[in-house]
Design a protein around this nucleic acid. Structure first.
Lengths: 185, 185
DNA sequence: AATTTTATTGTACACTTGTTCATTAAATAT
DNA sequence: ATATTTAATGAACAAGTGTACAATAAAATT
């Protein structure tokens, strides 16, 4: 059973309007009313699908996260030679992913956005890292794998935050090199 | 010139009401109206001091950050013996600080809160670490100190996030030991 | 092509928000 | 103690929020 044409039409219009407005103002200052006016969708229809503007954004977020997961599957080319044995390829993929969706991540890392978006990203990276970590620490049953992966995942995100602060002036390639250097110290 | 008694009276009432409501619901679902009703303060008065509920919370936040800065100055007793040469005492202080203000940090780490609070905490820890890092990397002028400190600061916060997720079941002491173990691997 | 199902619309409602301003009351200064 | 300054109040405003429901229109099904 495929989704009703009217529904996807409405959702496309709302997503388009949101993307348009996000280039002008922050997520929290976009009202349901103006969003619906721009999308030419009835306000009641919006509430039938989403409870608040954030929910609409989150739906978009999931498609981006999907891409991150997919990019993890992709074969590695240009960075493999950089990698030391301590670097998880998954972690190093993140910077290219952020670069690709820069406009989007400018929102995700903006101050006014709820912490939940950061957590969604964190979760994703933590999961990617966890598999690698649990292999590496197979012999040490005494240490909490969740803690180790949380530590490593968030360290990477620390670099991403600083990258955002410096207005993404470095290239993703630069960030990869930086990460390798930090890990090798 | 000291602050007007009426102002501090109003602010105390508002802060008290906020703390009371935060035990029941999330920050974002507290309306200005209900806050003022509980505090017995006119809604117009609220807006004279704060633009939104978040601003009131941020005022409280700053007093907590002050405590974190102060605790950094305190002489070290019970953890010094644990420290390897690679561990910055500042970083290891953070877990005791979070434990002390657990109620508060349950809010700071909750999903619905704006990312700006996380950044305030991040900034603070990054600054504390930066001094230590710049000493350590004095010879390596090619590496961005902000990046290294962002990496390390956020790694610690990753542990704090995971700690929060596990409902703070470990003691601050446990977290310190864990950090030392991770760093020594 | 006709029928059934279901999404969208328009309208209405009570409520919250953010702002303004004259009035009142409380604190500070004389 | 009185005068002056300044904060708090109450009322009113336009606009947004969230919800409900009957009427309509557009899909899906037969």
């Amino acid at each position: 059973m495929k989704t009703d044409l009217r529904i996807s039409k409405t959702k496309d219009a709302l997503r388009g309007a949101l993307m348009h407005l996000l280039k002008q103002k922050g997520l929290n200052s976009i009202s349901v009313t103006e969003l619906c006016q721009l999308a030419k969708v009835n306000r009641g229809t919006f509430y039938a699908h989403y409870g608040q503007v954030e929910n609409l954004f989150e739906e978009y977020f999931k498609t981006i996260m999907k891409d991150l997961a997919d990019s993890y599957q992709e074969p590695y080319k240009h960075v493999r030679n950089l990698l030391s044995k301590d670097v998880n390829p998954a972690t190093i993929r993140i910077f290219h992913h952020i670069e690709k969706y820069e406009t989007f991540y400018r929102i995700v890392f903006s101050k006014t956005v709820p912490l939940s978006y950061y957590y969604l990203l964190f979760d994703h990276i933590q999961t990617l890292i966890r598999d690698d970590v649990s292999e590496h620490y197979l012999d040490r049953l005494d240490i909490d794998i969740s803690m180790v992966s949380a530590y490593q995942a968030n360290a990477i995100l620390g670099l991403a935050i600083e990258w955002h602060r410096q207005d993404f002036k470095q290239s993703a390639e630069d960030m990869n090199r930086l990460l390798v250097r930090i890990l090798s110290i």
